[in-house]
């Protein structure tokens, strides 16, 4: 079928450095550097060693960011993941105290998270009519509720033998093991999102899930996988969290889902789906972590830090919207 008009269509991609720097991710990188300079200025003890030492407190939430980003990219959401962390941590602690060998404790923690994720995935794919917001609102209450039952009247549990957990909280020099695992996860999840078919399909589903389905993409399968992986990583997060706290209680992991979503959104991933890059989420996660560490070092009220984070989150979404509408107006004015 020869083109009747002989018109040709260009297929050369535009790969300029300027564009890359002007992108949201480029801006975030600049912000990351700026925040580090700021922290260095305000805190005399802000250096790499100290940051790495204090990081584990905040790192556990970053595990949740990766699969949460996938789910957000598909236009769905999971607000039950904090409860999943709580339940997984509870189960791990209970089994550890019951004398289960540490490898078994790890498996139980991971399995608990995975099962929770599968339940969400099952409900989300079987009842597509329901917004996942509502489904996970329900399971959020259920998962934490089960943890509350398991924890009993005291509402908390302390590890009687923390040897195993102490081992995974270990370090190579100043760098905790957890840091390596976060980085490995970051690389794997980014490569999948950017370079693999699975990632492309994530964006397709988030941009238009009907078209994706009509084009032969197994939408339900991908949703189920993503929710399950989020559950699994909630298990990982729970284990590392336990290794820092040596126990669990009814408020363990509270607000983790919001933090994970906030990191993703701050990183430019739209909750409407289909837009944003995982790398942005990762940069924003480390930016937020550095900010928390730095402000924590100067003994700033943790509540003020929360206010700053909340304001940053809103600005992250508001600013591009405002600049967009200004540039639209300018374009219109220059045309007229």
């Amino acid at each position: 079928m020869a083109g009747k008009s002989g018109r040709t269509i260009s297929a050369t991609p535009d790969k300029s450095l300027k564009k890359a720097l002007l992108s949201w991710e480029g801006m975030l990188l600049l912000l990351f550097i700026a925040i580090n300079i700021l922290c260095k200025c305000i805190s005399p003890v802000y250096n790499l060693t100290n940051v790495l030492r204090e990081m584990p407190k905040y790192l556990t939430e970053i595990f949740l960011l990766f699969p949460m980003a996938y789910i957000l990219l598909m236009g769905e959401i999971d607000i039950s993941v904090g409860s999943t962390v709580c339940l997984a941590a509870t189960m791990a602690c209970l089994s550890s105290n019951a004398g289960v060998p540490f490898i078994g404790v790890i498996l139980i923690g991971l399995l608990t998270g995975t099962v929770c994720g599968m339940i969400n995935g099952f409900l989300a794919t079987r009842f597509r009519e329901l917004p996942t917001m509502i489904i996970t609102l329900g399971t959020q209450i259920v998962f934490r509720g089960i943890a509350e039952i398991a924890l009993g009247d005291g509402g908390s549990i302390s590890l009687t033998n923390a040897d195993g957990f102490r081992a995974i909280a270990g370090k190579v020099g100043p760098v905790p093991y957890m840091f390596f695992i976060v980085i490995i996860c970051a690389v794997i999840f980014t490569v999948i999102a950017e370079k693999r078919v699975f990632g492309r399909n994530l964006y397709a589903i988030g941009s238009n899930s009907r078209t994706a389905f009509y084009s032969g993409i197994k939408v339900n399968q991908m949703l189920f996988i993503s929710y399950t992986v989020l559950g699994l990583l909630a298990g990982v997060s729970a284990l590392f969290l336990t290794s820092a706290t040596y126990g669990a209680n009814t408020t363990t992991g509270k607000g983790f889902e919001m933090d994970a979503i906030a990191m993703a959104v701050f990183g430019g991933i739209s909750t409407a789906g289909g837009k944003g890059k995982l790398i942005g989420g990762i940069i924003s996660a480390f930016t937020i972590t550095c900010l928390r560490v730095g402000l924590g070092q100067i003994n700033m009220n943790p509540q003020v830090i929360l206010i700053i984070l909340g304001a940053l989150l809103i600005c992250a979404v508001l600013l591009p919207n405002i600049s967009q509408s200004i540039s639209d107006k300018k374009k219109k004015a220059s045309r007229a």
């Binding site: 959401i77 919001m258 909750t271 929360l306 206010i307 984070l309 304001a311 989150l313 809103i314 979404v317």
Partner: peptide, 9 residues
């Protein structure tokens, strides 16, 4: 959801 999450903090 994002705006109110921010204001929640």
């Amino acid at each position: 959801i994002i705006a109110t999450m921010g204001f929640m903090y």
